[in-house]
Amino acid sequence: MLEATDLMVFYENMLALNNISISCRDNQIVGVFGANSAGKSTLMYSLSGIMLDIRKKEKMAGGERITLTGQLTFQGKDIMDMKPSDRARAGIVLCPERRRLFKESSVMENLRIGGYLATKAQARESLDYVMTLFPALQKMTKRLAGFLSGGEQQMVAIGRALMAQPKILLLDEPLMGLSPLMQATLIRAVKKIQEQSDISIIVSEQYARPVFPIVDYAYILENGAAVMEGTREELMDNPDVKSAYFGMS
């Protein structure tokens, strides 16, 4: 469904992504794990096209020169130069790191802004779905998004992304800074999204442990390169992975 080949991203001369090839098949959950600055967010931005916007803004401000090379195809079409808004329209929706909610708008408004691309019927249907997926949101539709707790904000962020009718959902560190209980709730929700729809999901996270049980396939990034990849079972059995990402020896 989404396939990146030899993706490279430079910030000036710093290599942020080094020859990464990843792919996500229909209705699969793909995990991307790695420490801070391993290139997870850069990868997510490149896949969703936000990197093109960042590049444009940096260029205008005379800041860092960003170079992107490689191939990127989505449903068989080359999307390397597609604008981020068009990619979202095509079905690649990013739920960004640190959530980036519209803090001064209510929860309901956040969700409805998310439904910008949806038709009225789609929006209604997705809204119902989000509310059944995250029943906790039902009681707080009128509250300002900025005043919610981290977990609630993340629910809104995922809900907002779902409103945009994604075919593939990119979740960038959805569990960051949340309690283990909240992490479990969100991970269950992500699994449900996969089971109850035909959406594919790529989820990046620093710690593999909470996400690992639901991924079908995973990549491990180090310094911008994919150092290991495999199905869940393959990686589980790998002693290096165990020690580095699960704290087991």
Binding site: S48, I50, D53, K83, P84, S85, D86, A88, R89, V93, L94, C95, P96, R100, L101, F102, K103, E104, S105, E109, N110, R112, I113, G114, G115, Y116, L117, R160, A161, M163, A164
Partner: peptide
């Protein structure tokens, strides 16, 4: 700005242009 699709999109963009871009709102 509170009840129409376009108005809400403008409101979103006013708050966080890049987040709006991720939702397909062409800035």
């Amino acid at each position: 700005t509170h009840y129409t699709r376009l108005g809400l999109a403008l409101q979103g963009m006013a708050q966080d242009e890049r987040a709006a871009l991720m939702l397909g709102i062409d800035s």
